[in-house]
């Protein structure tokens, strides 16, 4: 599988990273290099193998469904690039 320029632009869009036109070819070459490298997994027979999703040798812990945290709006907003009162602000979405 080889990525073309259109696919690179589509991935960049999905990843929400602005990519300038002159970067596309370089990125395509680098990403294809990596995908070519990982393609060696094709030779491994994984018939009947269950996928391993995590590093933990344990079952997920459950806890009671109760509020354990909160009431810290000021701390949460302290690093906001822009705020208005107790709200984060972003460019207008709906005109």
């Amino acid at each position: 599988m080889s990525l073309d320029a259109a696919t690179v632009r589509r991935i960049a869009k999905l990843a929400r990273i602005r990519v300038e036109e002159e970067e596309v070819a370089v990125l395509a070459a680098e990403l294809n290099g990596i995908l070519g490298y990982v393609a060696q997994l094709d030779e491994v027979d994984v018939t009947g193998v269950e996928p391993l999703s995590g590093g933990a040798q344990m079952a997920m812990r459950l806890r009671d469904d109760v509020v354990t945290d909160g009431e810290m709006a000021e701390k949460i907003l302290a690093n906001a690039p822009e705020r208005s009162g107790d709200f984060f602000t972003v460019p207008k979405v709906v005109e």
Binding site: I11, L14, L35, V44, V46, V49
Partner: peptide, 29 residues
């Protein structure tokens, strides 16, 4: 950026099984 884009690609519709799921199975091995 490279890693985010590779990650986005291997998780994207149509490629998930070929890349991500396959990798998780080899990880089990």
């Amino acid at each position: 950026k490279r890693r985010i884009m590779i990650g986005t690609y291997v998780l994207s519709a149509g490629y998930y099984d070929a890349y991500y799921l396959k990798a998780q199975k080899v990880r089990a091995l």
